[in-house]
Write a protein that binds this DNA or RNA. Sequence first.
RNA 1: GGGCCAAUAGCUCAGCUGGCUAGAGCGCACCCCUGAUAAGGGUGAGGUCGGAGGUUCGACUCCUCCUUGGCCCA
Length: 972
Amino acid sequence: MEYKNTLNLPQTEFPIRANLAAVEEKMLGFWKAEDLYDQILEANIKNPRYILHDGPPYPNGDIHLGHALNKILKDIVVKYKGMQGFYSPFVPGWDCHGLPIETQLLKNLSDDDRNKFKEPGNKVEFRNRCKDYALKYVDIHRREFIRLGCFAEWDEPYLTLDPVYESKIAAVFGDLAEKGYVYRGLKPIHWCPHCETALAEAELEYEDEKSPSIYVKFEILTPSLRCAQGIPLSIFDGEGDKGGEVYFIIWTTTPWTLPSNVAIAIHPENDYVFAKVGEEVFVLAEGLLATVKEKLGWHSVEILKKVKGKELEGIICKHPFLDREVPVVLDTYVTLEQGSGCVHIAPGHGIEDYQVGLKYKLPIVMPIDAKGHFDQSVPDWLRGMYYDKSNKVITEKMHADGTLLKLEFMQHSYPHCWRCKKPVIFRATEQWFIAVDHKNMRQEALKSIQHTKWYPSWGENRITGMVETRPDWCISRQRSWGVPIPAFYCKACGKVHVTGIFNKAVVDVFAQEGSNAWFAKEAAEILPKGTKCECGGTEFKKETDILDVWFESGVSHAAVLETRDVLSWPADLYLEGSDQHRGWFQSSLLTAIGYKGRAPYDAILTHGFTVDDKGKKMSKSLGNVVDPQSVVKKYGADVLRLWVASTDFRNDMAASDKILKQVQDAYLKIRNTCRFLLSNLGDYTPGNRPGLTGQVSSNASVSFLLEIDRWILLRLNQLIEKVTNAYDVFEYHLVYHALYDFCVTDLSAYYLDMSKDRLYCDAKDSKSRLSAQYAINEILNSLVRLMAPILSFTAEDLYQCMKSEILNSKLETNSKSKINPEIQKGSVFLLGMPKANKEFLDEKLEAKWNHLLEVREEVYRVMEVLRAEKKIKSSVEGRVELYVQGNTKEVLNSVKEMLPMFFIVSQVTISDYEVAPEESIAGQKVANLKLIVRQADGLKCERCWMWQESVGSHKEHATLCTRCNEVVSASI
RNA sequence: GGGCCAAUAGCUCAGCUGGCUAGAGCGCACCCCUGAUAAGGGUGAGGUCGGAGGUUCGACUCCUCCUUGGCCCA
């Protein structure tokens, strides 16, 4: 007869081919049809909340790998928390305003349209186009995020362009203004003359640029009193106090800022020398004398005097080409790295210059207009000239006057506009600021940072350093696509109004109509009738600047957490790339400190950036970009998700096709292992245990299980502990390794391989087989839940298949989510995470099995020799003779019966170590062991393929061993 | 140029507060099975722990410098 038909071979509907692309699409449909996201929330509605607040990406183009990584990480957090029983809603958001969309749009316009949109009257139309553009990409992003398997409130995301959101922006702005954090001031800022806009630090790109490098002499007009007293030098004699041929030397790479020069700064503690060269005397830092000497080609230099910089304070020099007196001032930021140690100061064109200017009350000379041209305040030979062109004219003029000592060119890193890629300049303009030192905002922020939990811990250090040194926050931009700064100017007296009824009017109108109302309406239409300025004025002008988009996203805690019922303030977690220490974490922190007095988050988790397999950043030019859409197409979203989980995201994360291929291999191994588990449960009723009929609801005792099954459940419960702990601290790469190693080693290589014989060959209802199925059922139920936050599609696919194959299962679930598994509409995400069952955590059993597995290694090593000699093929053809003593003897004897199964051989004998024959081989790792592996005695049983001496002794079934004979006889 | 971070086998990761010949899985090589089969099993070869100094009886682990890479800033 065909004995194969009497075996209990694995059987399952679950296909061996993953075919993820199709399965995932199907599953997305299923989740949507089930409203699974809502179901999960509903299930946990009475439980504690866990709020992960989404940082809004910018909707432009398709999502890239970084976006995918970020959202998948968030999704893992949210799904895990949900499965742990937390009420964990996730409201995704997009940062819709800002320069990129504006410039993108302008780029695609005809010249006529572009000019049309420069007219203030057409702003609303232009903004509507921006809105359409933003919404289009929000849709694309959303579709792509959904495809990754991320669960979220996709139908109602938050958008910074929503009226409610915009209204809240205005409200928070008003609140901060009310508290005095907001001020207006003239300040040099990065300015792009091409885009005619102020740029934030984040909007700058540093690239090499060729610039002139010039040395200029400033003639001393009047040595200061102190200087004259302290240094009654011959150099100041002769023409009396009129000075004479004595000059300061300054060095600069921006000749065009010289018309704005109002001072020369030197370091108070550095030594400065009076160097006589020919008939002239030059003042410069001693530390740079050698450099300057070489640069200027001085042959002989005579040092007339050396003084500390502070002694030179107050000397008045003459501007090289303007009728202006220029004082010498002190500042410690002056360095000896380059130049002459004497720094040309133009407070309108440099941030340090500006600060020195504040200290010395220097005027802010600012003759450059918004387009980068000189205005009327400069001599006629400069008027109207583009700043960059003036470099040549100015140096030529100074050359002609003899004030230019040296002109050369140099390459150096220079800021460029992130959009137009053109060089930017520092230019003083009227701007709106948040005063970060007002009411101790900075100190409060630092305090809040200490109270926040940072993952990884160095994040605290990093953001602390940034907050400690950051300057005031410039929040105004001269653009169209954003939320206007809600400020009114009294036409009569010029006073600015940003609080009280002025703010409330804006907040209301934004909430009703969105911020377009600001551009569509006159001030009088926005403000309540009869609104008056203190001066009595009743007519107001609207501010034309808009807010920095960082301010918009920075108030998301207020605009989203406070306005959505499902959410709450503060969030439990913010999770973004490590660049956000300077970006969103900080803008959110500062606005929240001003608004509510504390950080809007309890914990921050940051991830690194995606790089290629050589550790280089991904860029189009390097051609090493990994595109998530292609990955999803080629491998499936679950493989991408597994990649996210497999890499320690606190560092950079390497991705390449080679790496993804490896992740796919791992994925397939996990999937296949689960499939095999599933295929052995086809005829199993969950809850059934050996020796008992019917179902039991709990395993009050594990003694009914075979030792090997107790061991694998021990390993399973260790896995559950390990995985749970790793999930809790967001270390998903440990989850991945633990799950994977469990599948590869514990299950595939050990347990399942060892269990095949009893699963296939023992009687269907035998104790040994039921024991295995009990364990396998436990394992599969745990695995699908452990993997679900990461391998969401596959876990769900498996679970759905289990449901159809194993109905009525009684699953042990986390008490927080009591799910009735009999519900047909269930999802793996509605089950709790498994909890480790301490009953199985038997340390003695573990130690014993570790020892046994070492013996197994010895056996297989020796068996390999036999195989090489072609004496046996598979291990079942083998007979293992063990010669043991001591501890090893004890352990092996205690499990004597199961050793054939354990080694997957036909026969095992145990003898005393002393009687080991000559040809036996000593264990390498196990000391008390010698062994021999030879061909098994007897014949091969046709049914179970084991070699037994009993084969041939049964009349009915002459080709069967005793065990198989019994099984087959009983079943017929 | 400054701040923060990282660097362990081809790949992804372990290696706690310094202590036995540095571990795992994958990949690779060779072999076996064909009752997990577009699967499964076994054995084996792979590392001067980025480099150089230093502290220590002892350093992959601590310190300094350097190199490379990443983020942020100038």
